[in-house]
């Protein structure tokens, strides 16, 4: 084999390595997103955890894979879990993009940084979900936060503003918990998995590998 072939096969190997990671991790991200929902339902817990898989895939592989995992979780979730999930796939894409940008700057390196990321992520999610909630849901999502929306509407604010303000008060807490969860999960990965992902994604900038 001459050197030309070796160089070609090396870059071919790199592309095929990236492809393998994408093929391996995106289904896992989708399954984990939906699987956590199943787990929560199975343990009869009053929680709603919807983005941990998306956050993990984005940090491990990158933004395109994260978008794929998030959007597909919610599209397939429409078939497997609840048919209104597809309308929130846009929010998942926004989550993947924002998490990727923050992870690239190392904002999952420590707990305080992760908390900041979570708070900002919550704001992003609230703003992106608001139009969907207003047009399709008339302002409510059926969770307890409807009470806050009712209160704001009663005080005369417009629907959009009420929904955004409701989101801004609830989402940051939820998203911070999910980000911290992802932070903890990434740190507890076995060495061999951390090594496998060290080449791509943002894990090297955020976790000791």
């Amino acid at each position: 084999m001459n050197s030309n072939n070796t160089r070609e096969s090396e870059s071919g190997n790199a592309t095929s390595r990236k492809r393998i990671l994408f093929l391996a991790v995106v289904p896992v991200g989708i399954l984990v997103n939906l699987g956590i929902g199943t787990l929560v339902h199975f343990l009869k817990l009053p929680l709603f955890v919807d983005a941990v898989g998306t956050i993990l895939v984005t940090i491990l592989v990158g933004i395109p894979a994260g978008i794929a995992a998030g959007v597909l979780s919610f599209l397939l979730g429409g078939l497997l879990v609840n048919p209104v999930m597809p309308y929130f796939s846009g929010t998942q894409a926004a989550i993947a993009i924002f998490v990727g940008i923050m992870a690239r700057q190392g904002f999952f390196k420590s707990i305080p940084r992760t908390i900041l990321t979570g708070i900002l992520l919550g704001l992003v999610a609230a703003v992106v979900s608001a139009p969907v909630i207003v047009t399709l849901f008339g302002g409510i999502t059926g969770s307890g936060s409807g009470v806050i929306t009712a209160f704001l509407l009663a005080s005369g604010k417009s629907v959009l503003k009420s929904v955004i303000l409701t989101g801004v008060s609830c989402e940051p807490v939820d998203k911070t918990v999910q980000c911290l969860f992802a932070f903890w999960l990434l740190r507890s990965l076995p060495r061999n998995l951390k090594a496998r992902f060290a080449a791509g994604g943002y894990i090297r900038r955020n976790v000791d590998t």
Partner: peptide, 10 residues
């Protein structure tokens, strides 16, 4: 015994 700090999945 010699792998007490190893991750079980390693």
């Amino acid at each position: 015994n010699s792998q007490l700090t190893e991750h079980p999945f390693d």
